[in-house]
């Protein structure tokens, strides 16, 4: 039997976010150096990433606003990726994937950059840095919080 395999998108480069109408305002802020969480106008719940409804009270996004955070956070856990997920990532390995808890509450999946991988630790304080990747978006990443010292 002849096998017909599924279409496979040839996405080999490290992707840059492509804003949609729902996330345009969020990504515009990143270009201006601001990472925002979504704060519900009805119940004050903070969430990340921005969504169409508040997870806590289900009011629509039109009732919420995007509020910049301090950029201070803490590493909940991390991994050093040694094997690139696709050929386009080869130049980036080793890189650090981390789950970071923001001072304001929400957590996000991100990278720790510009810091020796062997010195990264669970509980380390980190500070937001942006990497501009297009006219429309800069990706929030984190590095060691110099004010708190290393760790």
């Amino acid at each position: 039997m002849t096998r017909v395999l599924a279409y496979r998108p040839n996405e080999v480069e490290r992707p840059c976010p492509k804003p949609t109408p729902d996330t345009e305002e969020f990504w515009r802020a990143t270009v201006n150096g601001e990472l925002c969480v979504q704060v519900c106008g009805s119940c004050a719940h903070k969430q990340y990433p921005p969504r169409l409804y508040c997870e806590a009270c289900l009011e629509p996004a039109s009732k919420s606003s995007l509020v910049p955070v301090s950029g201070q956070g803490e590493v909940l856990s991390f991994s050093v990726v040694r094997r690139p997920p696709s050929p386009g990532w080869a130049e980036h390995v080793p890189y650090v994937v981390a789950l970071v808890h923001l001072e304001e509450g929400p957590q996000l999946l991100t990278n720790i950059i510009e810091y020796p991988v062997e010195e990264i630790a669970v509980g380390m304080k980190v500070q937001l840095v942006f990497e501009r990747c297009s006219d429309d978006a800069a990706t929030p990443r984190f590095t060691a919080d110099r004010k708190s010292g290393r760790k």
Partner: peptide, 17 residues
């Protein structure tokens, strides 16, 4: 696509957390 892919969180890296 917008909030995970840019960070290259492979499946092994996600479980490594």
């Amino acid at each position: 696509e917008q909030f995970e892919f840019p960070y290259g969180a492979t499946t092994p890296a996600t479980y490594a957390l």
